[in-house]
Design a binder for these strands. Structure first.
Lengths: 237, 237
DNA sequence: CGCGATTTGTACGTATGTATT
DNA sequence: TAATACATACGTACAAATCGC
């Protein structure tokens, strides 16, 4: 009999309601016996459930299942970790029609360097893309890719998934993405490209992406119209 | 000689530039020797650095220091984990003057239940608080506290820090907070209470807070005016 | 209030797997 | 292909928080 994945099994039980707020998870000792595995493996599985925001471990007490797990799961589009490349750049739903508004190869000057953190003199691709769903322009992506790390970009690639290109053709690994979200007054290009209607503000998601050599290869601003995305976070104490 | 904290020491070296993008961290083996500790402890320290977004581990290669660490640290108000209670509810900067706009003890009806996830019939404190800095109303907090779990709240407590009260007087532990951020059109009460100027949108940060019994004791909406906060996230692949 | 039992957290040692160079 | 270096896994011991008697 092949060993089952402890994490997946426990997650299934929590999401199906077998384990819930009224009880605690079985103790580590019991899980070790049930799954015929080591304490290390059981603790690793529980760690993942904690990251998911499903449970919380208390020293001396046990592992508690959080209330309203099912509902708050539904509330969020992407609770917990995002492990899908398409989902990363903007959002699954948005990837319907992509229009290239601008595609240039430029050299970083002082102003751009300050914003993107790329050194002055670096050649970069500056790409503006519009994300359209049902004839509404929901998002404007302004990408800055280091052309030394991401070479030979074309409009055709940009019209599809640049991340797919990086992964498949360049065989480069995306290691870490640091993101920051702000709300800002809409800029001229936001008014020009987005279906803002009456709104005069946009969400601005700034992303810095790093490869597994630690090098920053991307700076991106994604400008969203209001009411069309959520951003989630789980904080443990 | 007392043992030094491996995590803090490595973090110090990275932030001071002793370790940087040009090199990798010493191997686990070397750190074990230098700090005279076990592999477990070294790996635990590196795990924390990964959570901070400072480094990235690659199997077979080593632990890489991410580029632009210093700059991107400065960019963010609260990169990484938030471990300060004051910082949690809204933001450090905002805690200057707090005005109670409304303070009620009510019973959850169907409409409120759907939003807050509290069961119908639960007694709750509904509190509206305005966060004012330099004569600008930057944020409107709308708190719903389960009165069975957070009893005896008063306007005086609400004018200060409710979290401090929970921690010190109720001796309850805040275990997990799930957050969601959206951008929405300003509501009537937003126009009434916030210094919105020309903006017609607000940031809406929804927080669900849980104690270490897994019970949700709070639902809060924090409505912010644009341009006055950032929201950060680090994603590892 | 104290004490012991329970349960998770931290720590160390060791062995084997797997990706990179 | 071999060496290197992180990832996973198991076993063990003790610390620290919680809970019930």
């Amino acid at each position: 009999m092949s060993k089952i994945n402890v994490y997946e099994e426990l997650q299934k039980r929590i999401l199906s309601g077998d384990y819930n707020i009224k009880m605690r998870l079985p103790t580590e000792e019991m899980l070790i016996k049930e799954f015929d595995t080591s304490r290390y493996s059981v603790r690793k599985a529980i760690e993942q459930l904690v990251d998911d925001g499903l449970v919380y471990s208390v020293k001396g007490k046990g592992v508690v299942v959080l209330e309203n797990t099912l509902q708050s799961q539904k509330l969020n589009l992407n609770l917990g970790k995002i492990d899908n490349l398409q989902a990363l750049n903007t959002n699954q739903i948005l990837n319907r029609k992509t229009t290239i508004a601008s595609f240039k190869l430029i050299i970083v000057n002082e102003k751009i360097s300050k914003k993107t953190l790329f050194p002055i003199g670096t050649p970069i691709y500056l790409i503006k893309r519009i994300r359209n769903v049902n004839n509404e322009n929901l998002a404007l992506d302004i990408n800055y890719f280091n052309a030394q790390l991401i070479p030979d970009l074309t409009k055709e690639i940009a019209a599809g998934s640049i991340y797919q290109y990086i992964k498949d053709n360049l065989q480069m690994k995306i290691a870490v993405v640091k993101r920051q979200l702000r709300i800002e007054p809409a800029s001229e290009s936001d008014y020009k490209y987005l279906s803002l209607k009456d709104s005069n503000c946009v969400g601005n998601m700034i992303s810095l992406a790093f490869n597994d050599d630690g090098k920053q290869f991307e700076y991106t601003e994604s400008h969203f119209i209001p009411d069309n995305f959520v951003f989630t976070q789980i904080i443990q104490f």
